[in-house]
Design a protein around this nucleic acid. Structure first.
Lengths: 209, 209, 209, 209
DNA sequence: TATGAATGAGCCTTCATTCAT
DNA sequence: CATGAATGAAGGCTCATTCAT
């Protein structure tokens, strides 16, 4: 699964069909859920026969993996607004970072919910989700450690654990808001999360500044 | 589903059969997952016929609901150590509260993972999970508001949002640790979460004390 | 497979259904061949649903195994006419034995052809066929050895190998005649095979008598 | 099928492709069995497209037929060591003949097993097998008749039936040994079969000499 | 000729649910 | 109440064969 598609199309026509299947799969998955999606429906949506599905994928999991991969660029590298920008205050960086994350989440909300669904069912996708989360956790842990080194963040925190916890917090807020329909505005979310980050890390505590 | 069991056993014998089914269901669900569990297996595990299953339950969801209810006491009211105890410092209360929650989660980890699984699949159980979470969020939001009123917590925070975020944080740490196997000790968890709560609420900030 | 049916019916009704399925299977197998037989057809022929098939059998092989077992009594113990009869001449015994075997083969010709078919496809049934053949080979090898000990058969023969070869000879004659339609009368067969056995073992050679 | 290949390649390139397909088919058939072999695999093994397969063959049976034909020379005319050699004793001729047959069988054991497999499934190939067998049966029947005419073989035997039976015997011994793995050495086989032939035909009975 | 993608009929298998005893 | 056999809709998957390039 890690290497996703079993067979790669050799011709342009094949490339088109495969792409059509992946697009159709996303549509059907988002419409019917992972379990509810039938390969038949995906093929139909892609205007091809069920046999063609098996030309490119071995099973539902595999095409879901392909759907995720097709969306990953947008989800993993949300237009990061100068995270390492020297001029920006740590607080501004946190805010920008949270906003970027939350907006990317919102854009791909149906897909994120699907990932939650599949991860709850299939251990292989729990691993996918874990890896995805870890990208953010690592990135944030390093930023926290750097701030601690600069004397700008609470030095008694375990950077790794704090990153895990605060990242989980933002991620979970995104999930409840965009997937479960908890009614909160983007601004509230961004500001609320940012304030909690800032406080938790003591970014503006006079003692740490 | 909301009113859980369809039919309540009239005889003692029926009571026993029903209880056996619920216990068997928990065993089978925890062993095979929600989707993997077949009603046949549950009946077999309970040493009764498949027909008997339908004497007490209408469907798989319903018996899962019953399993949850049977476990709920332990999960919802984890031996709360005097939350409103006037003598205890806010920090001590947060710590005790987190520890109680995390320990209850650990005790019921398999079931919590199941709930995640089912919630990811079935909207009715998303609601169950939401209600369960809300109990904690409310309780914590009230505590936060009270501390704010006492001048002991950052007054600029939105108590409701902060509670949602920080509760989600702890809950998600519990999930990754006890359900996904992230290796963190109970003490690390309790202390890490507590410190982040304390910082985030500015419980020991001189300015707020 | 060796222990054939996975689940044994508990009630009389189940017993009836299972028996109906086995009978239907023999009919369908003999009509359509092993490969051509669809589980659907077998269930239909037995007047039950496809689901019922799976109540008693896991797969086509398994029900075929059951069909064989149901027929085995007639095939393995063909009314052996006093093989160890002291009064009978060895030649008479060979003749009677061959006749009994060939008649049993003829009675079950369609099934024997099926067994050949399945054995050619499935290694497990090659083993079944081998075991069935071995029963005859052993029995005959012992008879040959006994005749040798009595000075009534060519002592230079390897009794085991001779038995294997001569048994294969009769068996193959039965196959080509009753399954492939080679036109030979039962009498020709019996007499021809018997004469070859008698000669091959030198049963009436003056030197060995 | 009887007229084997549907289309004969016109160009040298076509000739090469066709030959590659036949060779690949033998490899795949021997590896996966007749039923297990997919045309796709054969084409892949021959390093050509599935489409090309249909340029030369109409179906799986047809290429199997081609495989058999390609191997037939070695199988039908095993370097017959002067069968009609006047100088050799009948017994020596039988021995040489059996050895030649058994060695040819051993060389082509996988293919012979395949032929058994296909013959068990497809009536057309039963006919192929029958014709192949008949070549030997005829040849042997003529030899037997000749020996009878010379007063060297039991004159009471039906030459045709005896040939059928004794040929089947050798053929079946070859099958069980080389295809089913019955452990018997080539020498044992040759000597055992020869002795049974000699006895059965009474080739060295003083009365017939 | 060669290519390899596209086709789709066809069969197997599962399991929640019903029902006769 | 208990039993467990019967049901059958539903969907996954294969692979021989066709066809557009």
């Amino acid at each position: 699964m890690s290497t996703s598609p079993a067979r790669t199309p050799a011709t342009a026509r094949g490339e088109r069909t495969r792409a059509a299947l992946v697009a159709a799969a996303r549509t059907v998955f988002e419409r019917d859920g992972y379990l509810g999606a039938r390969l038949t429906d995906i093929a139909a949506e892609a205007n091809c026969s069920t046999g063609s599905f098996y030309t490119y994928f071995d099973a539902k999991e595999q095409i879901f993996q392909a759907v995720l991969e097709a969306a990953q660029d947008d989800m993993l590298h949300p237009g990061m607004p100068r995270l390492a920008d020297d001029e920006a205050s740590p607080q501004a960086v946190v805010r920008a970072s949270n906003r970027a994350y939350l907006q990317a989440y919102q854009r791909n909300a149906r897909l994120m919910q699907l990932l939650e669904q599949v991860a709850a069912i299939d251990p292989e996708f729990r691993e996918v989700r874990r890896r995805r989360a870890q990208v953010f956790v690592r990135r944030n842990a390093q930023a926290i450690a750097q701030l601690q080194a600069q004397g700008a963040a609470d030095p008694t925190l375990d950077a790794e654990l704090a990153s895990r916890a605060l990242s989980a917090m933002v991620s979970r807020m995104a999930y409840t808001t965009f997937c479960l329909g908890e009614r909160t505005s983007m601004n509230e979310l961004v500001e609320g999360c940012t304030q909690l980050w800032v406080n938790a890390l003591r970014l503006d505590d006079p003692a740490t500044v």
